[in-house]
Design a protein around this nucleic acid. Structure first.
Lengths: 408, 408
DNA sequence: CCCATATAGTTCAGGCAATAAACTAAAGCT
DNA sequence: AGCTTTAGTTTATTGCCTGAACTATATGGG
């Protein structure tokens, strides 16, 4: 017998099987064009028809469904010179999603409307090192409820949420496989409790991946292919290819922190040897620079490092320079494996960029000449809140790609 | 104004815009199920309906179109125990495609029917080092015409072809960007001349990528995610993810030969430093093993190396062991970047596998513990003709994925 | 002020493709 | 022979898109 399979997987809406799928696909197509319209400008039905190739009649009908579902709304007029002015359409700012983050030193939550505007945001310091998941999630649930309440005051409805965690995750199972810096391993999260009654639920993300998605949305150059390198205690990465997160067959691609940059190097927490993280991770740099644990506070240590760099202390300079060189080696190899030519530096790599940049570029030139143009090594445009914004943005995006889930 | 775009890109048939696209998609769905059926067994319309989730009526109609186009045919009966027996369906073996290859020491061509059976095959020795493309293509055109004639004698029609070349290619432009071992750079190929009158034309492939696709088709374990490492003069690679070739944004992903495995290593032909190829490429191994150029023949040099290994010559053993260790480093990094956990060794790595295996596994254990199970390092199932078969198979596959191109 | 022109958006008939259910076809079993 | 079971076809229905006609609403010239 044949292995039975559903006609049309709801998986990605990519394989139409019946006529109804055409509708789903076109709803997403139209909504996608509305969503990607530049801020401030609002497309009319006629413009959407031209942009999508659908007829005006089809677009009108599709738009009607989206209006009924409250996903978009009409806003103002759109004079085209002569003739009847079009009616502008935009994502409904009365609907929103929540981004949440658990990190080593804090938890945070923010409400972002469908247009991408941050309405409320709160960061709460909390030491989550070697923590147990239950209490952390409970604290986050309280924070989320408060932030949600504040958003409700704005008259905004929260449809769903995304949670970013610094570790390897299995999004489908809502499971954190390993988050060494939290001390978590194999932890199943009760995400539903974070945002009860939100129709779209809560999705789970790796922190670097979420930050990469935030970069995708906020890059001034509009790049659609790049590697986001997240420098935290560990070194993570998010690989964006064709405006999509590339996660690989197992779901954990882009782990540049564990590329081998020194075959004779130190043992890594991952069990490997000579990984980039052993040279360019925060703790590794602090140690090489001779900066001891500053009252367990990494931000204090980072301040001290910056001071040392400003004072041109040889040890600190050498540590950062070595990190830059090794980052270059890792990026050279990455360029070959996934053929990417653009890098965005995040986390402490963004902070240290003035000192990292030149050894990094030299290293790229030495190990992968011609692969990265100089302008293709840039600094994060979203900064610290990247993971938070990315988690929220990703939920918005999944809504834009599957609007039928919200139709009556 | 809005950037105009076609309603439904013909690009991948993945985004339906109108009802007609549903038909295209379902034609491909049904044909795909027929094509992936195990050899010898032929699905009936009813089985296809069950497998695809479409109704029997729809499948009947779709099958009729495919029969009319000559893409499939009915073959024999398919008793299901009780009840009316089904009519078996298979890809029409009266239609075929041609695989072609240009390599350093030879050119070759083969006709493969849609069912994947090699009908005619011819390899012609030819020294293509530092060659000019024109004469090589002319010789290949003659060879292709002869092979095609022989296939015609079998009563088989050739629909299209694929050409594999050892170098970086731009398939869309039919352009070889660089093929160092042929001495080609920036060469535009007149592929149409190779197979005049073939309705599907001729597609261009990188050799390692084509071989990877052949592996995908012929793997006994049916793996859908692996890295194929092609050991030739250079070290190439083909990355198969989700049963698709992953080419990256620029189209040249999987170049494992230029992963940095020794930051203090030798200069590479690519301009980089310490690339895998400088340690594990054929010439690099020969040189390290103390085997001089044997009358310019690499097969002779390889024979000599195998002799030396059998005789346990320390120099030869050390050279191969180092290649294995460094290959392990490269694969460890690849595992992190694209999260792949399975490797297929091709080219000289397949030949040297008995000596490579243990240093390779040790190296993987050292640099990426837990990433590759021991059984996940295997040897090519298709051997030397991989690129040839892969190029042909890839054309078959593109036909299976877009059968509407052959409908009346 | 009015009418020509231009553009936006809606209405309506037509066509295509899938579905569901009834129907015909062809086997095995008793 | 007749019942049961499975394969495949026929027919009526539904959903969605298309194209063309139609309505709505603006600008601008006489």
């Amino acid at each position: 017998m044949v292995i039975p399979a559903p006609a049309v997987a709801g998986s990605g809406g990519s394989a139409p099987g019946s006529v109804g799928d055409v509708r789903r696909s076109n709803l997403a197509l139209v909504l996608g064009r509305i969503a990607e319209f530049p801020r401030g400008a609002h497309p009319s039905r006629a413009q959407l028809a031209a942009a999508t190739g659908l007829t005006k009649a089809s677009v009108s009908s599709l738009v009607l469904d989206l209006l009924d579902a409250g996903i978009i709304r009409e806003i103002g007029f759109n004079p085209q010179g002569r003739g009847r002015p079009g009616v502008g359409l935009e994502l409904n700012p009365g609907r929103a999603v929540m981004g949440m983050e658990i990190n080593v030193d804090y938890i945070s939550a923010a409400v972002v409307d469908l247009a991408g505007k941050v309405l409320v945001r709160e960061v709460q310091e909390r030491d989550n090192r070697n923590s147990v998941d239950g209490p952390v999630l409970a604290a986050l649930a309280v924070l989320a409820a408060r932030v949600r309440g504040a958003a409700g005051g704005h008259g905004v409805e929260v449809l769903g949420g995304g949670l970013a965690v610094p570790g390897l995750v299995d999004p489908a199972a809502a499971r954190v496989l390993t988050a060494p810096n939290l001390g978590w391993a194999g932890v199943d999260l009760d995400l539903g409790a974070l945002l009860p009654e939100a129709p779209l639920g809560v999705a789970l993300f790796n922190e670097a991946n979420a930050a990469a998605l935030a970069e995708l949305r906020h890059r001034p150059d509009g790049a659609s292919d790049f590697l986001f390198v997240s420098g935290e205690v560990g070194v993570g990465g998010g690989l964006v290819i064709g405006s999509e997160l590339f996660t690989g067959p197992g779901g954990h691609a882009g782990e540049v922190g564990h590329i081998v940059v020194d075959p004779d190097g130190a043992r890594c927490s991952c069990g490997g040897t000579g990984c980039l993280e052993t040279v360019a991770g925060q703790d590794a740099i602090f140690e090489a620079a001779g900066i001891g644990p500053v009252e367990h506070s990494r931000s204090a240590a980072m301040a001290k490092l910056l001071q040392a760099l400003d004072a041109r202390q040889p040890g600190a300079l050498a540590a950062v320079e070595r990190a830059g060189r090794c980052l270059g080696i890792a990026l050279a190899s990455t360029a070959r494996v996934v053929n990417i030519a653009s890098v965005v530096l995040g986390g402490h790599f963004a902070v240290l960029e003035p000192w990292l940049r030149s050894p990094l570029l030299e290293s790229l030139q030495k190990y992968a000449p011609g692969r990265y143009a100089a302008g293709q090594v840039s600094v994060s445009a979203v900064g610290e809140s990247g993971a938070l914004l990315g988690a929220a943005g990703s939920v918005i995006r999944s809504l834009v790609e599957a609007p039928h889930k919200l139709l009556a």
